[in-house]
Design a protein around this nucleic acid. Structure first.
Lengths: 208, 208
DNA sequence: ATTTTTAGTTAATCTATGTTATTTTTTTTA
DNA sequence: TAAAAAAAATAACATAGATTAACTAAAAAT
């Protein structure tokens, strides 16, 4: 049977898991034997459009992003994954088909990878991981349900505010261009939006 | 121990479950003892904004919809749930907090309800339901991830086409008003979009 | 350190979609 | 089946955000 000694690299992940399920020592070691550490440089790709995604990725440090591209080369960012977040192309992971997402690193990052194959083993051998990933999937679902509605109903300014709220640690670390691709406007429009003087309140001069 | 004889009302649900997990007869009966049948009339509410959602709902026949409202009274439809679909306010179900969704019936419908409390019992007593609902949550997640991106990147015409593809059984059953609220345009604009002649190709007359 | 590349700013013009209002058609209810 | 209510169609006008282009500032690469 595989075992693996937990190292500092695993702290963040084990912490996330322990919030939802309790693992015996041997279960923890067994699980970690399926996990591999990977370091990537800024701009390095973890997944390109049309590839099958073989790994669920947990971000230990740094930040990843997943995005799609349209025929004009425009980017639309589906998700940022700063420290402590999971990321992957769920469609491709589930179906084992090539996906439409690209995933790359916004900064030098350290990741923990678990392959789809090993994840299936984990589900079989330590069934309570079904509980852990069910809860995670449900939370992520709520978040994307909310964003799908926000993207229909809110103006760019309001979507910007939601972004700031959702990723408070990123606002001053990533470029406006990335934020624009997340809220779905052109960088030119975002720039204008952030610089235009708040409209002067002209009520003071209203007559009648 | 609770048991319950499966009736015709449960066929569709049991079929959905058996696609993902295999239940022993006693597990099936145990599970069904937690499920109640409910019939609702067209326009009847299952959940109103600000209420806590106590039930996950499975649609046996008819169709439900979940939606949010903005301050101007505009509706934004998060999901239709025709026959064989689950629906609920996942945020409220998870957190037990009041949610922002309304859920009501577009037609007379028959539902199977399982309360949050009983669902927690099911997870504990028949752990493989964690697998079933994990897989469902993951599929639903993919669907909402995709829609969130589509709502940013596609024009109304394309969102209309995606709607037709996603709910092929609904196109000729629900009003344009509902479709407009799903794709995020005004009913006036949708009407114009569907009636405007496809632009005549004037290239033939181009000079130089 | 200098060059090259990328990101951000600004502004004029354009377009997809919203707004308001009126009329017609369809559906629901009495 | 008539009356009332809701949905759909149409059209004139308004606006949020896109497009294009030129310029400046900041990073990255040599």
């Amino acid at each position: 049977m595989f075992t693996y000694l937990p190292t500092m690299n695993h702290n963040l992940l084990l912490e996330s898991i322990s919030k939802h399920i309790q693992l015996e020592d041997n279960e923890q070691q067994h699980f970690l034997s399926y996990v591999q550490v990977k370091k990537v440089k800024k701009k390095e790709y973890l997944l390109m459009e049309g590839e099958v995604n073989h790994y669920a990725m947990f971000v230990n440090s740094g930040c990843l992003r997943s995005y799609t591209m349209d025929k004009n080369g425009f980017h639309y960012i589906q998700q940022f994954a700063p420290e402590g977040w999971w990321i992957g192309d769920m469609y491709s992971l589930i179906t084992k088909e090539p996906g439409k997402l690209c995933i790359d690193a916004l900064f030098d990052s350290e990741l923990l990878l678990i392959s789809r194959v090993n994840l299936d083993r984990v589900y079989k051998e330590i069934p309570k991981f079904n509980f852990y990933f069910r809860v995670l999937a449900e939370k992520s679902l709520v978040s994307f349900q909310t964003r799908a509605m926000e993207n229909l109903s809110l103006h760019a300014k309001e979507r910007y505010e939601k972004f700031c709220f959702r990723y408070p640690t990123l606002i001053d670390k990533i470029s406006q261009k990335q934020v624009a691709a997340y809220i779905g406007v052109t960088p030119e429009f975002l720039s204008k939006m952030l610089h235009k003087d708040p409209k002067v309140n002209s009520d003071f001069f209203d007559v009648d």
